[in-house]
Design a protein around this nucleic acid. Structure first.
Lengths: 193, 193, 193, 193
DNA sequence: GATGAATGAGAATTCATTCAT
DNA sequence: AATGAATGAATTCTCATTCAT
């Protein structure tokens, strides 16, 4: 899971490429051109294009795990944690459009089992964190418990994904963090006891 | 918007192809082979591959408009309408996996403006219908009104999309209609007054 | 050499097509579309595309023979005949751009022996007529005779072709007849005794 | 405007191909086969087929500019210069049939603006050189001046082109240099005072 | 580490032509 | 006469990858 400077450069450039114009734009040619090296040079650093995609996912997962660890260790009410987590995520996507573009496009990763497995894991991990927070919130009597933590987290995840998707389709023409705050208000109203 | 028999056959085959193995599998060669005609024969029926994709969307839109019209004309409580609509949609996707695979993969349609425009319209139309039902429900005092109809419909759409996406990623290994009913229970609990 | 109405329509449309955008634009599809019939209908009237090209040439040759016969029968000085012929030809090309485009593009007819043979014949016929006029002019002491009639006619033909070619390349943006008159003045000065 | 070895090879092969059987024979397949590399290898050296055609023209233009520069610097009477130039050009075409076939077939370059622009420039450049020589000849009292230099150069260019064209149509069955000399005699007679 | 040249497989599309109706 | 459907061959071009240097 450790990447060299060049490997990171390649991965990041690949992410940008995908974010910009979709997976079809991620070709070795475009990639190498954007970096400024020869096509064949790419193969010094990654065995194949598939490995670059795996690299993207692994980088993303690492990042998310870091975020989640921070969150778990945080001392705060469940409400604060949940808000914190969602707003942080929106901020992250707003600052890293490319990642947003890549991570919610399961389609891109359908060709290979290793890829779809990774995407699935990332989704699961994420859900687990939210479920954890909500369960805690229910036990602390902050959140309603007539809906299971799992179902609740499902609704939240769905909304999160949809807002990011719409933001992408709208070509980033609205303020994601702003809309994210509005969404949080809704979610808060819905989950609080 | 009227398609000949052959055009419908091509569109349906294209949908199946995409659903099966993703957009990358949708080549004129695969398409013509699956139908059993020559590659060039495809071009007698569609000017280009792009037009086939537009055909898919137009077919889907037509279908959805039909569904929505039925719904609008229906005499029922907002709760019933909403349940009816969601369950119907799950049933439709369960029976038309391919369409589900295609319609929630905005990524596929990013290459061309005409395509993304269509996808956007379909999403909008859909949201409008749900908003309409919820507003009615709020006025009839069936649904809570501390959350706007728009926000609520947003949560619902997000959940709907997420469940279908997970079902696809899980390679249809769970019963979508079953899970859809469970989701409906959650939604009902959340929206009712 | 007798063509039906439809055949003539096809030939004329073919000429226009070539004149407009070059031989590459002469496809059965474009042809049938411009006429307003189905592609396959063309084959009712011509056995193959080659026969259409042959038709173009045959039509043109007929026309030219007619022009030449008129000229031969005309009672006038050689100078008048030559002027008449050249100006007439420019007028004809100005009015029939398409024909000009086709007839000076030997390239188009290189694929098939039957075609290039025809083109060669047309060129020869033409030269013969000019040679005839010049010889007469020399015998009548109107034209210089230190240059053979053949060489002189060669210079004239070359100039005629070049002016039409330039006119085509310039996309008909200058007045061919006007320039033709100027060219005639030059020729007259050069040939007269 | 500098070409690699391989690029020159491709351009030359393309010229040969066109000269042999016309532009229709210039396909990437034929080209690569004649060279002995894979089709896709061509694209390492030229972005597209259009660029190969542009390459042909640019190579030709370079060559011609070289010839013209030599001529301008030459110390000689206008008559000698003109003869020298024409005979040199015939010699060049006789030795480079392929180039002759290509360069006088404006038709071939009609598809693209960049191409026809180049062809037009080459024609213009050429004419300018001849006009220059003739003007000098008129001022030195070698050439008649009752016909403008421009008109005279036009006649000469027309004749030059026609002779080459006929030589091509005759499938190179006559001696171009021989005929060129005869043509020169005619031109000399016509232009001299 | 990096490059340039090459490759084979495959992509979308076009074209002239045929044939049953 | 004309049409609609189909075909096979060909065309330009792209792509991931390899290899010698």
């Amino acid at each position: 899971m450790e990447f060299t400077k060049r490997q990171q450069e390649i991965i990041n450039t690949a992410i940008e490429l995908i974010a910009d114009k979709g997976i079809q734009e991620l070709t070795i040619k475009n990639l190498s051109q954007k970096i400024g090296i020869a096509e064949s040079a790419i193969y010094r650093h990654f065995k194949s294009k598939l490995d670059i995609l795996l690299g993207i996912l692994s980088l993303f997962r690492e990042n998310k795990e870091h975020m989640n660890r921070q969150l778990t260790e945080m001392e705060a009410t469940a409400t604060d944690k949940l808000r914190h987590m969602l707003l942080k995520r929106f901020a992250y996507f707003a600052a890293n459009r490319a990642v947003a573009a890549v991570i919610f496009s399961e389609e891109l990763f359908r060709n290979d089992h290793r890829l779809s497995e990774q995407v699935y894991q990332i989704m699961q991990d994420n859900q687990q964190v939210i479920i954890g927070i909500i369960t805690a919130g229910q036990q602390a009597d902050e959140f309603r418990d007539d809906v299971s933590a799992k179902e609740m987290s499902f609704m939240i995840t769905g909304a999160l994904r949809l807002i990011v998707t719409q933001w992408r389709i709208a070509e980033y023409t609205f303020d994601l963090e702003q809309e994210g705050k509005r969404l949080w208000a809704t979610i808060e109203t819905l989950v609080k006891k």
